[in-house]
Computed example of a mutant assay.
Amino acid sequence: MYKHILIATDGSELARKGLEHGLSLAKPLGAKVTVLTVSEPMRPEVERAARMGGVDDPAGCFDQQIDAIMKERFAFIEQRGSEHGITADLMHEIDDSPAEAIVRFAKLRGCDLIVMSSHGRRGVQKVLLGSQTSEVLANTTIPVLVVR
């Protein structure tokens, strides 16, 4: 059925549910798994504020923090994958729009299922807080499994 599953995660507790579902689904299907995390770049106003606060190399500090977070996140994902008997490709991208990056990545890599989590917000909460999951759903033709 599915041959290449893309699991999108931001490392949150909720996203871990999506990770577990994706890994559990991949094993019996014998599907390849790629786990993608998308980070937003450092905003110019944050960089300016950091410089005003005395940070000499805000971009370098930001990159170091992202690297440390990704090492920890990827170690967790590798452990969970191992427990499921799955070896996943681990990918990290930096993009202003995580949803666009997920859709683009899935298409370029030939993924035939995207697994991700959602808080399931509706109405004003969804409009105010945005929803990467809603954006992915609206912009892809690839099936999406949404875990809540």
Rank of each mutant, 00 (worst) to 15 (best):
M1R: 13
H4K: 05
H4G: 02
L6W: 01
I7R: 00
D10T: 08
S12A: 13
L14N: 03
R16P: 10
K17R: 09
E20I: 12
L25F: 03
K27C: 11
K27H: 11
P28A: 04
L29E: 04
A31R: 00
L36H: 02
L36R: 00
T37G: 06
S39Q: 15
S39N: 14
P41L: 00
P41H: 05
R43D: 08
E45L: 10
E47F: 12
R48W: 14
A49R: 08
A50W: 04
R51T: 14
R51S: 08
D57I: 04
G60D: 07
C61N: 14
D63T: 15
A68H: 10
K71M: 11
E72A: 05
E72L: 09
E72I: 01
R73N: 12
R73K: 11
R73V: 00
F74Q: 08
F76Y: 15
F76W: 13
I77C: 03
I77W: 01
Q79L: 05
E83S: 15
H84D: 07
D89H: 09
H92K: 08
H92D: 07
E93L: 11
I94N: 04
D95K: 00
D95F: 03
D95G: 05
D96P: 12
S97R: 03
S97N: 10
S97Q: 09
A99T: 02
A99P: 00
I102Q: 00
V103P: 03
V103C: 08
V103W: 01
F105Y: 09
F105Q: 01
F105M: 09
L108V: 11
R109D: 05
C111F: 02
C111D: 03
D112N: 03
L113I: 05
I114D: 01
M116H: 04
S117I: 06
G120H: 07
V124T: 15
K126Q: 14
V127A: 12
V127Y: 14
V127P: 06
L128Y: 12
L128Q: 13
L129V: 03
G130C: 07
S131M: 05
S131L: 03
T133I: 02
T133A: 06
S134M: 15
S134H: 14
S134W: 11
L137F: 05
N139Y: 08
T140W: 09
T141F: 13
P143S: 10
V144S: 03
V144Y: 00
L145A: 14
R148W: 11
